[in-house]
Deep mutational scan, measured.
Amino acid sequence: MKVIFLKDVKGKGKKGEIKNVPDGYARNFLFKKGLAIEATPANLKELE
């Protein structure tokens, strides 16, 4: 799953980066803790 990092996550990504991460990791950790959001076309446009 492609995500946009909202905060730095040690060993995974830095704020503003767009990366592919495992689906479970994104849903169960990154999204729940507010560390990242899904890289949807709308979210990507908002980032620019």
Rank of each mutant, 00 (worst) to 15 (best):
A42P: 08
A39P: 03
N20S: 13
T40H: 07
A36E: 00
G13L: 02
V21G: 00
V9E: 01
K15A: 14
K2Y: 14
K19S: 07
I37R: 08
K33M: 15
L6R: 03
L30S: 00
K10M: 13
F31N: 02
K19Y: 07
E48D: 12
L35H: 03
I37H: 05
K14Q: 10
D23N: 12
K32P: 15
G13Q: 02
I37Y: 06
P22F: 07
K10H: 13
F29L: 08
G16I: 01
E46H: 13
D8F: 07
G13S: 04
A36L: 01
V9N: 01
A42L: 09
K12V: 15
L30T: 00
V21I: 08
I37M: 09
F31E: 05
K2M: 15
G13T: 03
K15E: 06
K12D: 06
E38A: 11
K45E: 11
Y25L: 08
N28W: 10
K19M: 10
K10Q: 12
V3D: 00
L30V: 00
T40L: 06
K14M: 12
L47P: 06
A42G: 09
D8E: 08
R27Q: 10
E46M: 14
A26M: 08
K33H: 15
I4V: 11
A36G: 03
N28L: 09
L44V: 12
P41Q: 13
L6F: 03
A39W: 12
R27N: 10
V9F: 03
K32T: 11
V9A: 02
K10V: 12
T40I: 08
L47T: 08
L47M: 12
A39G: 05
E46I: 14
I37Q: 07
L47E: 07
K2I: 14
M1V: 15
P22S: 10
V21E: 03
K33R: 14
F29A: 05
A39H: 06
K2V: 14
I4R: 04
F29M: 07
I4E: 02
G34N: 11
K15P: 05
P41E: 14
T40A: 05
I4M: 08
K10E: 12
F31S: 02
G11I: 01
K33N: 15
I37F: 04
E17Y: 02
D8T: 12
E38P: 14
G24Y: 14
N20G: 07
Y25E: 06
F5V: 00
M1I: 15
K32M: 12
E17K: 02
L35N: 01
N20R: 13
A26N: 03
I18L: 06
V9K: 01
L35V: 04
M1S: 04
D23L: 14
A42Y: 07
K15R: 13
K7G: 04
P22E: 11
E38V: 07
K2E: 11
V21M: 11
N20K: 14
Y25T: 04
D23K: 13
V21T: 02
I18V: 13
V3R: 00
F31G: 02
L35F: 11
E38T: 05
G11E: 05
T40S: 10
F5P: 00
R27D: 06
F31M: 07
D8Q: 04
G24Q: 12
G13K: 01
L35G: 01
L30E: 01
L44Y: 05
N20M: 15
N28V: 04
K2N: 12
N43K: 09
F31H: 02
R27T: 11
L44N: 06
P22K: 07
G24A: 14
K45D: 10
I18F: 03
K45V: 10
G24H: 14
V9H: 06
A39M: 06
A36P: 00
F29E: 13
L47N: 09
K7H: 13
E17T: 07
E38Q: 10
E17G: 02
K2P: 10
A42K: 12
V21S: 02
